[in-house]
Simulated scan of single mutants.
Amino acid sequence: MSSDISYTTEEIAKMLKISKLTVYDLIKKGELPSYRVGKQMRVDAADLEAYKQRAKGTRTASIPVQAADNLPLSAAPAMNGVRPLVVTGQDISLDILVKYMEKGIPGVRPLRAYVGSLDSLIAMYRGESDIVSTHLLDGDTGEYNIPYIRKLLVGSSYMVVNLLSRQAGLYVQKGNPLGLGGWADLGRPGLRLMNREKGSGARVLLDEQLRLHSIRPQQIEGYEEEQTNHLGVAGKVASGEADVGVGIEKAAAIVGQVDFIPLIRERYDLVMLKKPENRAWIGALLDILRSEAFRKELQTIAGYDLSRTGEVLFET
Score class of each variant (00 low, 15 high):
97 L>T: 00
262 P>K: 02
70 N>R: 13
61 A>W: 12
298 L>Q: 03
82 V>D: 06
211 R>Q: 13
163 L>D: 03
179 G>L: 08
228 T>F: 06
239 S>R: 08
153 L>H: 14
50 A>P: 00
189 P>F: 03
226 E>Q: 10
191 L>I: 15
296 K>Q: 15
45 A>R: 08
204 V>P: 01
20 K>H: 05
153 L>K: 11
42 R>W: 02
142 G>M: 04
98 V>C: 12
279 R>F: 03
162 N>P: 05
174 K>A: 12
80 N>Y: 10
57 G>R: 14
289 L>I: 02
185 D>V: 02
302 A>R: 09
283 G>P: 08
48 L>H: 00
273 L>R: 09
224 E>W: 07
29 K>N: 13
105 I>V: 13
237 V>G: 04
147 P>Q: 13
188 R>H: 09
306 L>Q: 05
179 G>K: 06
172 V>Q: 10
30 G>N: 12
146 I>R: 10
168 A>K: 06
133 S>D: 13
261 I>T: 01
189 P>W: 01
47 D>T: 11
29 K>Q: 14
217 P>D: 13
237 V>S: 01
154 V>C: 11
181 G>P: 00
246 V>D: 01
104 G>K: 13
80 N>K: 11
48 L>T: 08
265 R>A: 13
195 N>Y: 07
167 Q>I: 02
27 I>R: 11
216 R>H: 14
237 V>F: 00
316 T>S: 15
173 Q>V: 10
19 S>E: 09
84 P>R: 07
99 K>H: 10
33 P>D: 09
215 I>G: 12
23 V>F: 02
153 L>W: 11
177 P>Q: 11
203 R>N: 15
160 V>Q: 01
283 G>N: 14
170 L>N: 05
49 E>I: 15
121 L>V: 14
59 R>S: 01
52 K>P: 00
154 V>W: 09
194 M>C: 04
138 D>T: 08
294 F>V: 04
183 W>N: 08
53 Q>P: 02
187 G>Y: 10
188 R>I: 11
14 K>Q: 15
240 G>K: 03
161 V>N: 07
58 T>K: 13
167 Q>S: 15
122 I>D: 09
28 K>F: 13
295 R>Y: 07
312 V>Y: 02
246 V>Q: 02
44 D>C: 08
93 S>H: 00
254 I>N: 09
164 L>P: 00
154 V>H: 12
42 R>I: 12
148 Y>K: 12
110 P>F: 08
95 D>Q: 10
143 E>L: 08
7 Y>R: 03
239 S>L: 14
140 D>Y: 08
42 R>Q: 15
6 S>N: 14
213 H>P: 06
55 A>W: 02
81 G>W: 03
126 R>K: 15
126 R>I: 03
202 A>C: 14
52 K>I: 04
82 V>S: 00
44 D>T: 07
235 G>P: 06
94 L>Y: 03
171 Y>K: 04
266 E>D: 07
